[in-house]
């Protein structure tokens, strides 16, 4: 009878909803209107701004000047590419670091589960900027971390990889990527945890019962089942990391400038609105193309 009950509930629900059809729309209207006016419309004004010419004092006129995009890309492609590269590296690192922790909380922590979860979430609620400033202290030359890194030869490896310029850790690509990884790690851990928590440990037992080695069990069972979390986590890490410029500014040098900083300074200091808008729009399109091709596999409903 259970299926029939569900069936009739489902249809009665649909029935009741047909009669009070306006209710969902009334619930949606204020919020979606807000998002439309202050998210969708700005995208249009952004595009429009990019195609205008003029200056702040005399005002801007729409001229359809597409050339600004060429100018933006030829001038700032290194920063754009660097942003995607740093964000991509930080995302991979966050996945590598976040996965064991998420797995541990979900499957191994037992009664410590909630404690560890709190410790992962709580820093996320404290100021991003202050925590990044703390890294500036930790990585500074005066501290033991740099000393050890030098003694253990880590800095030589980093130098060979081009991630640091000298024996210092701070103000280097290494510091920026490390800061990005650190700052967006909770965005990786939480979706991973959510899917790994639903993973039935009996499946892992079944896999090992069927002669799978731990590595094979991970490859064939755990990893595929955690893919929705991996997709959500990588997106939630990569997207904000690609537009971030706080880490690059606080932990990097002039050679680590990311595209967010360019947009910020073009808008607020140089006051070249069309160029800034064009850069912003290009970044949006790049992210959208990357996300869309990625999401095609997962579906938005899954991510929400």
């Amino acid at each position: 009878m259970a299926d029939a009950a569900v069936l009739s509930t489902g249809s009665s629900v649909a029935e009741g909803r047909r009669r009070r059809n306006w209710v969902p729309y009334a619930l949606l209207l204020p919020g979606l209107l807000w998002l439309f006016v202050f998210f969708v419309v700005p995208m249009i004004t952004l595009a429009s701004q990019s195609l205008q010419e003029g200056n702040v004092d005399d005002g801007f006129v729409f001229t359809g000047n597409v050339a600004v995009y060429g100018q933006a890309l030829t001038t700032y492609w290194p920063q754009m590419l660097r942003s995607l590269l740093y964000a991509g590296t930080a995302t991979v690192l966050a996945l590598v670091l976040g996965y064991p922790l998420a797995y541990f909380i979900a499957q191994k922590a037992g009664r410590w589960k909630n404690v560890v979860l709190v410790l992962v979430i709580a820093p996320f609620f404290t100021s991003f900027l202050i925590r990044t400033l703390a890294w500036k202290t930790i990585l500074s030359d005066n501290w033991v971390v740099t000393d050890w890194a030098n003694k253990l030869g880590v800095t030589s490896v980093l130098q060979a990889l081009g991630l640091t310029a000298n024996d210092s850790l701070l103000f280097s690509p290494f510091a920026v990527v490390m800061g990005l990884t650190y700052n967006f790690l909770p965005f990786m851990i939480l979706p991973l945890y959510a899917t790994l928590e639903r993973l039935d440990p009996r499946l892992l037992e079944a896999a090992s019962d069927l002669y799978a080695s731990p590595w094979q069990t991970f490859r064939k069972v755990t990893w595929p089942l955690s893919l929705p979390g991996v997709v959500a986590g990588t997106l939630l890490t990569f997207i904000p990391a690609s537009g971030d410029f706080i880490n690059a500014r606080l932990l990097g040098n002039t050679q680590t400038t990311m595209i967010g900083a360019v947009i910020d300074s073009q808008f607020l200091r140089v006051l070249d609105y069309p160029l800034a808008a064009a850069l912003s729009f290009v970044l949006l399109v790049i992210i959208l193309v990357l996300v869309a091709s990625y999401v095609r596999k997962a579906g938005t409903e899954e991510l929400l």
Partner: peptide, 11 residues
């Protein structure tokens, strides 16, 4: 049996 309409009648 399942789906015979008894639950719908009740509802």
């Amino acid at each position: 049996p399942s789906g015979c309409g008894k639950t719908t009648t009740l509802r």
